[in-house]
Design a protein around this nucleic acid. Structure first.
Length: 261
DNA sequence: ATGGCCTGATCTTCAGGA
């Protein structure tokens, strides 16, 4: 069987619900991790997703953040965050949700942005990623296929931004951030590298401003890290840049991974 | 000319995004 797993930062599930429904109908993922819901669990559009055969678990908190997992192969053992999840300004944020969907276990993550190097939010981002590395230690070693996927707000290499010279001293490309991705690999996770469906870079984000998408001034910051059982099952992966086109698009495109198992 | 957008809430102005 082929199991299709995907991740997508929708930049408001409320504003994006029609596009989300349309994309589910054409891409037909079995499991979809969402980020930046920007709504509450009460207002999460569970009914419209149920009409399409998807069960959903969400952790929303209103205006900012929010993560969800959609599945049409069952959803169980849902967990919000993990022990030791850091808070920001004294509040735990809705940035990580884990669930078992059929044969796989997945964690949907929305890693803090960091705002500026040296900002308290940047230190929070690094601490948050340190706690993630601890949280994945056990599932990384498990027999069950496991992946952590979502918006990491980090470009793994200089080639993962359209022009690295514009990123001097800015977040998303710094050595401490990239070291946190290496730390995930040290725990036994391997990055799944998606194909680009156009051009040579598999960018996943393009700014709304300055015709970023049209000029392909993008970044690859939506990432997938799988344990050995997950990585061994990957038969294909790509960025669905078609979904970034047209009016009412999110500024991120979905990343799709096919598993043959 | 050194910008240009989008979202939801504090709601005609702002914070945050990356």
């Amino acid at each position: 069987m082929v199991l299709r797993v995907a991740t997508w930062n929708v930049n408001s599930v409320t504003a994006r619900v029609d596009r989300l429904v349309g994309w589910l109908g054409t891409a037909k993922p079995d499991v979809l991790c969402l980020q930046e819901l920007k709504t509450t669990d009460e207002l999460f559009p569970s009914d419209r997703l149920a009409d399409l055969g998807y069960e959903a678990a969400s952790w929303g908190s209103g205006r900012w953040n929010g993560v969800a997992i959609l599945s049409r192969v069952g959803i169980a053992d849902v967990r919000r965050g993990w022990d030791g999840l850091p808070a920001f300004d004294g509040a735990l944020e809705a940035r990580a949700l884990t669930a078992t969907c059929g044969p796989v276990r997945v964690t949907s993550v929305y890693v803090p942005n960091g705002r500026e190097v040296g900002h308290a939010h940047y230190e929070y981002k690094l601490a948050w990623l340190d706690s993630l590395a601890q949280a994945v230690a056990e599932p990384a070693r498990a027999e069950q296929p496991y992946a952590v996927l979502g918006d990491f707000n980090i470009a793994p290499t200089d080639a993962d931004v359209w022009d690295v010279s514009l990123f001097a001293d800015s977040t998303h490309v710094t050595l401490p951030e990239r070291a946190r991705l290496t730390a995930l690999e040290s725990q036994g996770l391997a990055e799944v590298h998606p194909r680009a469906l156009k051009y040579d870079k598999a960018f996943t984000y393009w700014d709304y401003r300055q015709l970023g998408f049209q000029k392909n001034k993008g970044m690859r910051i939506d990432l997938v890290f799988g344990n050995p059982a997950f990585a061994a099952a990957v038969s294909d992966a790509w960025v669905d840049r078609e979904e970034r086109k047209g009016a009412g698009a999110s500024d991120h495109a979905p990343v799709v991974v096919d598993l043959t198992m």
